[in-house]
């Protein structure tokens, strides 16, 4: 499997390189280091959110509330910054992540303790969290002039040619890779999605693992709430509307199996970068943003077709199990060999 994934990630890298080459032929300068750094920076928020989404998808769930969560926390800390400019930025970021984690915990609780399917639970909270953002702000905007300079400018500060926003994404990627591959929680994510029953029998608490996946997704959404508001220098109810679908798309393109248990951090990042390149390139070569949406959609379907090989194999196993569990077929053929 890891070989297929490696191959798949290499393929994604190749596709992205070819895309950049094609675009830079049409628009010289597209492949310049500054432009590439800009694309990376521009995709930072999507990459961070996609990693949170990935944790949830690994456990066979989905978090549709990430963008609404981002909108609420973004609004909350923009208002906090406007009202209490003296609160230091690190504390504000910590508050944003805590609010996000709390909202994620609400999702996780519903999935873990009440047993609501995640797609339904987060579809509900998607609306609720945006509604909360409206209630909190009364529908008003928080403008650039109301926010402090450090709140607005810190993510834009350039270090070694890349704004801090981009560096933040790199830091999150590094931490998340470590967590997913080298901690018990990370292993539990893969085991829970790969075979919940086996995970349960091995003493892994499947429900709690799902819960913490949602908390992680929420905390990262909270962080992105701050990053988004400072980047666009405005907070209003509808920011990042529909962005949850981009995070799912990044995961799917990156080979995170929607059936759970399969996928790598590298894949999710490349999936996000792929979308980022398309989004940045099409305007440069004068293609309408509507085409951009159609192309993203097309790519998602192609990516799913690509996944089909892995998932079909898994599907067959499930089918074989189902046949084995048909009541009349309880005796497996091999039993006939009872010596």
């Amino acid at each position: 499997m890891s070989r297929i994934l490696k191959y798949r990630e290499l393929l994604l890298v190749a596709i992205i390189v070819v895309l950049i080459a094609v675009f830079s032929y049409r628009a010289p300068g597209f492949a310049s280091p500054e432009s590439l750094a800009n694309i990376f920076n521009d995709t930072s928020i999507l990459m961070i959110l996609a990693l949170g989404q990935m944790a949830v998808i690994l456990t066979r769930s989905i978090d549709l509330s990430v963008a609404a969560n981002l909108s609420f926390t973004g609004m909350a800390i923009a208002m906090m910054n406007a009202a209490f400019p003296q609160i230091p930025l690190p504390l504000l970021i910590a508050v944003a992540m805590s609010i996000g984690a709390l909202l994620g915990a609400i999702n996780g609780f519903m999935v873990w303790k009440i047993g609501i399917p995640s797609i339904v639970a987060t579809l509900g909270t998607l609306t609720i969290y945006r509604g909360m953002a409206f209630v909190l702000s009364g529908g008003a905007w928080v403008n650039q002039t109301q926010m402090t300079p450090s709140f607005l400018n810190t993510p834009r500060m350039s270090v070694l040619g890349l704004p801090l926003l981009g560096w933040m994404a790199i830091l999150v990627i590094a931490i998340i890779s470590l967590v997913f591959t080298r901690t018990v929680f990370g292993r539990a994510l893969y085991a829970t999605g790969g075979n919940p029953t086996a995970a349960l029998y091995a003493g892994i608490d499947v429900g709690r693992t799902r819960f913490f996946a949602f908390v992680l997704s929420g905390a990262l959404a909270g962080l992105c709430g701050y990053l988004w508001v400072s980047r666009y220098a405005v907070a209003y109810v509808d920011i990042a509307a529909g962005f949850e679908l981009d995070t799912v798309a990044a995961c799917v393109i990156g080979g995170i199996s929607t059936l759970g248990g399969i996928g790598s951090v590298g894949g999710a990042i490349l999936g996000a970068l792929f979308l980022g390149v398309i989004k940045n390139a099409l305007p440069v070569i004068n293609i309408s943003p509507f085409w951009q949406m159609a192309i993203s959609g097309f790519v998602i379907i192609v990516a799913v077709l690509f996944n089909a090989r892995q998932e079909k194999r898994k599907g067959r196993l499930i089918l074989r199990d189902a046949v084995k569990h048909q009541p009349a077929l309880t005796e497996t053929p091999a039993e006939g060999a009872a010596a």
Partner: peptide
């Protein structure tokens, strides 16, 4: 049933 209860088949 190993496949269902015992092992995570796609894991090493």
């Amino acid at each position: 049933e190993r496949g269902r209860h015992g092992a995570v088949l796609q894991m090493p």
